[in-house]
Every structure is written in C-alpha cells, then in structure tokens.
C-alpha cells in the first residue's frame, strides 16, 4: 500500500499527535508499537478515517481519508469485539452485507460462512457473542471486517482484552490471512507478532513517530526511547 501523512496534528486536551509526516510505499503489514498513551489508537483511527484530525492530511492508495468512499475500503477491529450482541456471529456479518452493501441474502450468507470458516468459526456461526469465548468473538469481529472485502484491515490491539492462550489463537488466525492479498495496519503489544507479521514498524512516543523501519530495527534500536521500550516489553 501507499501511505502519505502530511502535517498531521491532533489534540484532545494536549497534543496527542504532533506534526507527523510519513511517506511509505510497497509495504503490506505496518505494525505500530509504543507505550500506553503515546497516540497509537488515535493515529490508527485517523488513518482509518474514523476520526478527523485537527490538522494535516492522510492519503492511502491515492484516496484522501476525508473522502466519502474512503471507509468502504476499510475494515477495523477494535480492542474489544464490537459484535452486535443480539445477533448470532453469522447474522452479525449478513446484516452488514445485506443492509449496507445491498447484497442479497444467499450471497451474504455464503460470504459470511466463507469468512467465518477462514477464522475457524464455522461451527460457532449460530451462537450469539455472549455464548462464545473472547477469542472467538474477536475472530468473528475480524471475519466481519473481512467480509466487506476491504483493501486494508486495521487492528487496534485486538488481543489486549484476552489471556495469552486466546491471544495466540487470534494472532495466529491473523497470520493466516497473509495470503489474502490484503494490507494490514495494526497496533499491538505483542512484539513477537510484530516481528513475524509486520514488514514495517512505527514506534510511537509522545505523539511522534520516534523510530521507524523494518522489523529488524527492534533488535538494534537506535533511539534510547525504543531501547527502553524493548527492555520493558521483554
């Protein structure tokens, strides 16, 4: 994918993102890491077009983030699953396809099952979110995000509410998505996942991108900030 960020500044009470610039091309899985409160989620939401920045522009694959159709090419998975709790896993997907994409019932169901199966949930499809594990619910969220066939899938710490075993389960399902030809931008605290999955890494610190590069930079950090961070997460 091609990402261009120019003069990106965003503040709530204080500056959360401080004059970011980025110009990347050809990467398919960008991992964002950094301590809590460094602005990772804010950056991700702005990249996904969910939130409008105070200043600056975001352009992905030639389309600006404030473009009307921008969000149609995007899937987003939040920290905790955002499945609609009154619908089964299957219905969670079909309702999106039928109502927002105008896809007919049969096709919607077929697509939904295809994506649930891809995430190993075909036998859970008729359960409500409260009847499956946290990891399964999160995988269903991913299946739902994929089912609208987005170009880019955003994941914001999809495993931070899960225990280590469920974390592994979710992350290895995400790794299996590599072959789909989609691009990923994700935030995570699981460094091993960044090393396995990302082909480019952004390290955020106090609202700026303090260090960036291919994942091997994590083994030889240049800045003290990233050095400290790597010591902490180890």
């Amino acid at each position: 994918m091609n990402i261009k960020i120019k003069n990106l500044t965003h503040a709530y009470d204080v500056n959360v993102l401080d004059d970011l610039h980025l110009d990347l091309d050809g990467y398919h899985a960008i991992g964002i890491i950094g301590i809590s409160g460094s602005g990772k989620s804010t950056l991700l939401r702005i990249l996904a077009g969910i939130e409008k920045p105070n200043q600056g522009t975001v352009e992905i694959n030639g389309q600006f983030a404030d473009d009307k159709h921008y969000k149609q090419n995007i899937g987003f998975v939040f920290q905790s699953h955002t499945l609609f709790p009154h619908l089964t896993l299957l219905e969670n997907i079909t309702i999106v396809l039928e109502k927002t994409r105008g896809i007919d019932k049969q096709t919607a169901k077929k697509t939904a099952i295809e994506n649930l199966t891809r995430l190993g949930l075909d036998d859970q499809k008729d359960k409500r979110p409260n009847k499956v594990s946290g990891g399964q619910a999160q995988r269903a969220s991913i299946a739902r995000a994929l089912s609208v066939n987005p170009d880019i899938l955003f994941l914001d710490e999809p495993t931070s509410s899960l225990d280590p075993i469920l974390t592994d389960e979710v992350l290895s399902s995400v790794e299996k998505l590599k072959g789909l030809g989609k691009d990923f931008i994700f935030v995570t605290h699981v460094i091993s996942f960044v090393k396995d999955f990302a082909d480019y890494v952004l390290y955020m610190d106090q609202g700026v991108i303090a260090e960036q590069g291919t994942p091997d930079m994590l083994d030889n950090p240049k800045t003290d900030a990233l050095k400290n961070f790597m010591n902490k997460v180890r």
Partner: peptide, 22 residues
C-alpha cells in the same frame, strides 16, 4: 458501547438502519 457506534458508522449504516436493526 461507543465502539459499537463506531463500527456501525464504519460499515456505513444509515441513521434509520442503526436504530432499526441494531
């Protein structure tokens, strides 16, 4: 949750659809 609303927005549900179906 707020995230549920964000998810609805992202998928492009219209206001009526949000109320009616979700």
């Amino acid at each position: 949750s707020d995230e549920q609303y964000m998810a609805m927005d992202l998928f492009g549900f219209t206001a009526t659809q949000k109320y009616r179906y979700i």
